[in-house]
């Protein structure tokens, strides 16, 4: 599948934003600290930035408001509706933290729950497509939720370090564990992604009863929308290397940094803030590569007509 840059940015940034907002909603940081106030604003900015980015790939973005109408059947519509609904408790929580320096557990936890549901519906846009084998599995929502939770807690640890949260080790240690869990889920996802394809050139043409089907002549000489959109190949060539890069940047480096932060906590130290920030940045790079592979490696059933 073609990895549209706007969608990759959207799913990773909004995942981070929703993850951070979800942990903030649990009241783990002192709302009186300036760093916590910044964290609330940053979470909203990441989510909003992601949503704006996601409209960039539309053919007619001026009609995007129509996408709120079909929540009964469409996961994409549900995601849009939930994104807007989730803004309400998150903005309220952010207001309370920024202007009143307090945390309201009810609003906070409603926000946390809605963050999880919104990330889930983002992942279901892909998981609901039967035409793409590797996406059509419960592993897809699991890995989206895993990455959102892990990157969110890593970011929370960074803001906690900046705000002098004490003790810091549960946040940093928890983030390190969640990073490992998220990649363990992703590993499970990758293992299922190589199962035999649901459809073949034989079932696609219905000619399997005669024999083996091979394309003799394509229907068009140059490429078309289908080839460009569903037949992306660059990443497949370098899939192994990219997966290794994703693992090192997204798993090894941040897990080690966060674990180090948990073992040698230095509350409010500039060093601990820098270490946590590096962990978050490295994790984001790893997640961007992972998300790119998620799209680029996915094989669409329509390509059976072009083999």
């Amino acid at each position: 599948m073609h990895p549209a840059f706007s969608i990759i940015i959207f799913t990773t940034l909004s995942g981070l934003g929703y993850g951070l907002a979800a942990w903030l909603g649990l009241g783990l940081l002192d709302p009186a600290q300036p760093a916590t106030k910044v964290a609330h604003v940053a979470a909203l900015a990441l989510i909003a930035g992601g949503l704006v980015s996601s409209t960039l790939h539309l053919g007619n973005p001026q009609r995007a408001w129509r996408a709120f109408s079909q929540w009964r059947s469409s996961w994409l519509s549900r995601e849009g509706v939930l994104a807007i609904v989730t803004f309400m408790p998150l903005t309220w929580s952010a207001y309370l933290a920024v202007f009143e320096s307090r945390w309201d557990p009810v609003i906070g936890i409603i926000g946390t729950a809605l963050c999880a549901v919104t990330v889930f519906s983002t992942s279901m846009i892909y998981a609901s497509l039967k035409s793409v084998d590797s996406w059509h599995t419960p592993w897809t929502p699991a890995s989206y939720l895993g990455f959102a939770a892990a990157s969110g807690l890593a970011a929370l640890a960074a803001f906690g370090a900046a705000g002098g949260a004490s003790p810091l080790w549960p946040l940093a240690g928890g983030a390190a564990v969640l990073v490992l869990i998220a990649w363990a889920i992703k590993h499970g996802w990758r293992k299922q992604a190589v199962r035999p394809p649901l459809s073949t050139p034989e079932s696609a043409t219905g000619l399997g009863h005669i024999g083996k089907v091979r394309q003799l002549e394509p229907p068009h000489m140059t490429d078309n929308y289908l080839i460009r959109e569903m037949g992306f190949r660059v990443a497949r060539k370098h899939a192994r290397k990219l997966w290794l890069i994703a693992l090192v940047m997204g798993c090894g480096v941040p897990a080690a940094l966060l674990a180090g932060l948990a073992v040698f906590p230095e509350p409010a130290g500039v060093a601990s803030v820098l270490v946590a920030l590096m962990a978050v940045l490295s994790l984001m790079v790893g997640m961007l590569v992972e998300r790119w592979l998620f799209f680029a490696e996915a094989r669409h059933a329509v390509m059976n007509y072009y083999r």
Binding site: G59, R63, L129, A301
Partner: peptide, 17 residues
């Protein structure tokens, strides 16, 4: 139509362009 392309992704037959 907003041109999001999701319907083309969902079609296993490549019927939409």
């Amino acid at each position: 139509c907003i041109g999001c392309g999701l319907c083309a992704w969902s079609c296993p037959y490549g019927a939409r362009e």
